[in-house]
Every structure is written in structure tokens, then in C-alpha cells.
Design a binder for these strands. Structure first.
Lengths: 344, 344
DNA sequence: GCTTCGACTGGAAGCGCTCCCACTCCCGTC
DNA sequence: GACGGGAGTGGGAGCGCTTCCAGTCGAAGC
């Protein structure tokens, strides 16, 4: 294992030219079956693996993809984005690509930009979750193709959870349970996902002929945390006409809602049913296990990376590809499921 | 921004040869000050950044470091290793290096090995947390230099928390509180860190003249989880002579201990004091905020990566360096602090 | 005045690969 | 039987950089 075998070694061993070895290793061009297997054998015998670096230099592609995440999203205890990353990494392996994980601060500063923006050491980037829009501007300007996962921005290609669909499932479920006085609770309401859950829910209820009473809606623009959920829940629970069921736009809020209900001695789902969204780890473990919408985080990452790979590697001409990319934005949706537990 | 500027462009712009540009960019060799600044200017004017790939090919170094983590460690809700990674990534940025994050399954399978083991796209690897030893065997055999973070293996270089020191702090604290009937609770006891916490604690107590009564010790080899903590706690709390204070080898166990104490109507710290280790996010938020040993996760990652960078990049001759590396194993310890809260 | 030397700079050989192009066969066609 | 064309293969020019080596030139040494 002193020095690694190179393409030249393999060529010599197999008695062919390096061009042929290259063709075989890339599965390209027309190579006689006998030649192919001879090269194959020589390669295995020598333990040859093509050098990424050399390949990158020659082909103008690095085989690296970036995965960008906001620092605080990466470190939050609910392993949402780590799972997304895991899916992406899995898909990358399958495609023989590498993933460079890099974080950005909540507020973008050019000096904290991932290095690959400058160095172009990456063929494309997956951006997971909400990030500062100015970062996306910079990314866009760099000409590096990118796809968003669980976020939307202008017309950029993105992979998103089917928030509308999930919310519609909740609506159907609640209606099937006979609830007609139904509330909705959300925070961080400008976030595309949160917003979509709200509009999807309203739309589904409207289709069934119901409008959410204004007094049964509690929203805010702050963080969608458990404590925020408890605070917002107060607005619904302490009002004159309490809803009989409330859809919370995510599980953290829903768990906060449960806290608030318990603090008031209310029975869930007897006095008020509650449904969340996300199916976080704590949802099933809550005192009253939470009915919620399950989302497939790994799949989100897989699909996003796959999409990126497909698009950014298909063509070697990165710039032209990026332009084409920008012109044909697309949203891919990852289906969600309703998980019915005790809370509603 | 159609095509990136290359070293040739800069050379032409500055009216020097590419060799000189290279020297300037790397801060090497003797270059006249006037020439240097001329090149510098030309480079900024053209927005030149050296190509990683080309540099890698020519210099035999990639500028990439691997960061390996066990899948389940990466996804656990306590963001321990993600913080370690964050520290590593931070340090990498400072050194203009990239980090490839890759996970391995709990049980090593050669087919699930990180790709860079085969492709040598990485100058060195940080392995964080306990991983399957056969994976480390493979890593060692590959000749890629590596350092362990929060784990120990043979004589491999590693960066570890000062587990003994932290445990000694706990012992001193408990003794200062007047506790003499002190217990110890651990799980996953074969893990080097957990073991070190135990021996450190015993040693510190022994130095002070106390031996832990056998009946006040509860250990297991299973996962060190909250539920395991509750289960093990039962052995100590339901026994004939309950300890007045218990040191739990990590916070998850300690939180489990609190659960068990509460279930038995015991007052903490009145009936039994409890101290944990790690200072996880939940420690401060527990019903009885937990006294624990704080560890600096980001620092762990920073130091590990720094060490690796220092060693693996100092010499271009990776193989020789790896050999030297192996001969001079070292353990770097990251200091810990005691955080006193309500529980003990 | 001539050598010696060090500071500085340029030339050029790769690093290991991809990919375009040219070349050789060999078969099928008119 | 000459010709077109496709399948299979090799040659060779880069990709953008590092680094060794050679060279220039002015200052110091004798």
C-alpha cells in the first residue's frame, strides 16, 4: 500500500491504453467485452480506485456537493435536519459523491459564507431549512446550482414536505371525529411551511363547508417552540368559546398546547382534541401521545440530493446548466401520513 | 463570472510567471515585496482563488478532512456530537480546510465504509465517539492519519474530556457537602469515558479516605439512557442502606435517577443528592435542576481537528507521517467544570 | 577585476485523469 | 471490388496547480 495504483498501472497490467481504462472505469463508449473484463480484472488486482482529484481536474467536476444548514437548526435537539442530512448523505454514497456539510449563522455575513462559495469546490448545494435570504442571493449569484429542502425561495428548485396535503389529512380526520368547532394555532407564520399548513388546513375545511372561527385562531411570527405553543394556547383555551379541537402547525406547539391544557385541568381529547405536525420524537412519548402528521425526513434529503445530482452533474457546463436550472424551477413534494394517537 | 480566473491569468495580469504567483499564493519562497504586492493586487482584481482540485492534484494533498460519526450518535436528540462537529468545522474553516461528514453504522460493514477510505480523498480523519473497533482497524490499515474524539483505542491519538478530573470535582463537591455515604451509578461501563468517570470518582474518594460501599454501586453494560438510569436507581433507592448522594456517570442516567426518586416520593437533594455529567440541555431544565459536570463539546471538535491538521498536513508524505503518528500516540484532555444546581 | 553567493524569477516537468480526434479493422452495400 | 460507416482502440492535449532546477543579476569577498 505504499503508493496507490494509477490508471497507467492498470493500463500496463491490462495491456491497453489509459484511454481505454478510463472508458471502462466510467462505463462510457464502446469497449469490447473481452477488453472490459481484462481491465476490470487488472483494476481489482491492483486495488485501483480512480483519483477523485485528478478526475475532478480533468472533468471540471469535483464530485462534491455542499449541504448548508443554519447553525441553530443543526444544533437543535430535535434531530430534524440531521435526519435530512443523513438521507442526503445516503443518497450521495449511492451516487459516489461526497457531501461537505457547512453551517451558516442565522444572519448571513459574507465573511461566514461557506468557503465553497468562493472556491467552487462543489458541483452544487443543498440548502436545508430556512436560511437568510441574502445568503441565497449570494448563492444564486455564484452560479452554483442549488436546491432547497424544506424551504422555498423565489422560483428556486425545492423539495418540500406536502404541508397542504398533511394539513388536509388533519382536517379530514377532525371532521370525521365530528368536530365542527375547530381551531388553528401557529407561530413563525411567515415560514413557507407553516403558512402552507395553515392555508392547506383552511382550504380543506372550507371544501367541507366549514370556516375556522376567528376566535379559534392563534398565530404569531415568533419561534414555533413549546413555550410559544403554551402561550398561544392560552388565547384559545381561556376565551369564551373554546374550540373542541385544535390543529397546531407543529409538534412543539402542540406539546406546548398540551402543557397549557394540563395546567388548566382540561382533558385531552375529551375537552379539547389536539393534533400536531412533524411527528417528532417526543410526540409519541408525550403524556397524552400526540396525533400528528408524520414526515419523512431522510426521504427529503435523499430526494433533494438526487435532484441536485441529476441536474448539476448531467452537464459539465455548470454555468449554462445553472441558467437552465433557474429557468425551470420545480417543487417536489414528499408525501406525509397521519398518525392517530390518543390526543385527537 | 463566466469562467474563473486561473493562475495563468493572474500571472499575465501581474506580468510575472505562474511560479511566482504560486509562491505568493502560498506565502512560500523568497519573493520581492514589490512583486508580491503586484501579484496580490492582480489576484484580487481578477477575483482569483486557487483551484482546490488542481492544487490537490499537484501537491498530493486534498485539503479535505473526514469526520466520522456513528449514525445513531448523529441522530440522537442530545446534540452532543453535532456540537463536536460544529467545533471541528469551525476550526477547519479557520485553516481553509473542508470537512466531509460521513456516518458509519453501529456495526461495521466493509460495504458501508466511508468512501474516502477507498478513494483517499481525505488527508486525515476525525473519528468522534465510540465506533466499531473493526472500523478503526480498517482505518488504521488504510494509512490515513486519524485522531479520535471522545473515544480511546489502542494507542491512537485522541482528544478526550477530562473524565477523571470532572469526576474528582464531583467527589470534592459531595464531600464538601458532608456526604460520606456516597453511591455511584453507571451504564455502558465498558465505554472508556464511562469507565474513566468511575475510576476517577473512586480514586478521588479514596484519596479523601472514603470507599464506595458495594451496595451503593449500580452498573450495567447496556445503553446509558434515562430509562436505564431509573432502573439502576431502583437498586440503590430500594436497598436497605440508601446512599445520601449518588454520582451518575452521565446526565441521562441522572435524569432517570431523578425520575425514580420522584416516583418514590423522595426529596432531591434532601433525601438523596444527585450529580450528573455532561451538562446536557435538559439538565438545567429538569424539575430539580441538575448539578453536573459541564463539558465543552465544540472545543473537543476544534482541538481534535486542529491536532489532525497539524499532523497530517505538516508533511506531504502521508504514509511516513502516518507511521510517525502511530508511534507517537497522545491523549489531549479537555478540561471540565462543575456546575452546581439544585440537585446536589 | 573576477569569483561566489544569495535573492529573486522563469521554465518546464509532472500530478492522474478526461475526452476529442485519429486510426484501424471489418462488415455490409451498391 | 470500391466505398461508407460503425465498432474498438490509442495518441495526446490539456485541466490548474506545485515544485525542482536553472538562470539572472547585483552585491560582497578576495
Amino acid at each position: 500500500m505504499s503508493t496507490r495504483a494509477t490508471i497507467t498501472d492498470v493500463a500496463a497490467e491490462a495491456g491497453v491504453s489509459i484511454s481505454t481504462v478510463s472508458l471502462v472505469m466510467n462505463g462510457k463508449g464502446a469497449v469490447a467485452e473481452s477488453t472490459r473484463s481484462r481491465v476490470q480484472t487488472a483494476a481489482t488486482r491492483l486495488g485501483y480506485t480512480p483519483s477523485r482529484t485528478a478526475r475532478g481536474l480533468a472533468a471540471g467536476r469535483t464530485g462534491n456537493l455542499g449541504f448548508v444548514l443554519r447553525e441553530d437548526h443543526f444544533c437543535q435537539s430535535e434531530p430534524f435536519y440531521t435526519r435530512v442530512f443523513l438521507g442526503a448523505e445516503f443518497e450521495a454514497r449511492r451516487r459516489w459523491l461526497y457531501v461537505l456539510l457547512s453551517t451558516v449563522p442565522p444572519r448571513y455575513r459574507p465573511d461566514a459564507a461557506p468557503r465553497f462559495l468562493q472556491e467552487h469546490t462543489v458541483d452544487g448545494v443543498v440548502v436545508a431549512g430556512r436560511v437568510d435570504d441574502t445568503f441565497l442571493d449570494a448563492l444564486g449569484a455564484s452560479g452554483i446550482p442549488f436546491v432547497l429542502a424544506d424551504y422555498a425561495w423565489h422560483g428556486a428548485a425545492s423539495v418540500q414536505l406536502d404541508n397542504e396535503g398533511g394539513a388536509a389529512l388533519v382536517a379530514a380526520h377532525l371532521l370525521a371525529q365530528g368536530h365542527t368547532r375547530v381551531g388553528f394555532l401557529t407561530a413563525d407564520r411567515d415560514h413557507p411551511s407553516m403558512a402552507a399548513r395553515g392555508t392547506g388546513f383552511r382550504a380543506a375545511m372550507a371544501t367541507a363547508g366549514y370556516t375556522l372561527p376567528e376566535s379559534c385562531i392563534a398565530t404569531s411570527t415568533g419561534a414555533a417552540s413549546r413555550s410559544a405553543g403554551a402561550a398561544l394556547a392560552a388565547r384559545l383555551l381561556d376565551g369564551p368559546d373554546r374550540p373542541s379541537a385544535v390543529f397546531c402547525a407543529n409538534d412543539a406547539l402542540a406539546l406546548g398546547f398540551l402543557d397549557a391544557a394540563r395546567a388548566r385541568g382540561l382533558d385531552v381529547p375529551g375537552d379539547v382534541a389536539v393534533v400536531g405536525f412533524d411527528d417528532v420524537e417526543g410526540a409519541a412519548l408525550a403524556e397524552t401521545p400526540l396525533t400528528t402528521v408524520r414526515v419523512y425526513k431522510e426521504q427529503l434529503g435523499e430526494v433533494a440530493l438526487g435532484l441536485l445530482a441529476e441536474r448539476s452533474l448531467a452537464s459539465a457546463d455548470v454555468a449554462a446548466e445553472a441558467a437552465r436550472f433557474a429557468r425551470a424551477p420545480s417543487v417536489t413534494r414528499i408525501a406525509t401520513d397521519l398518525v392517530v394517537r390518543a390526543s385527537g
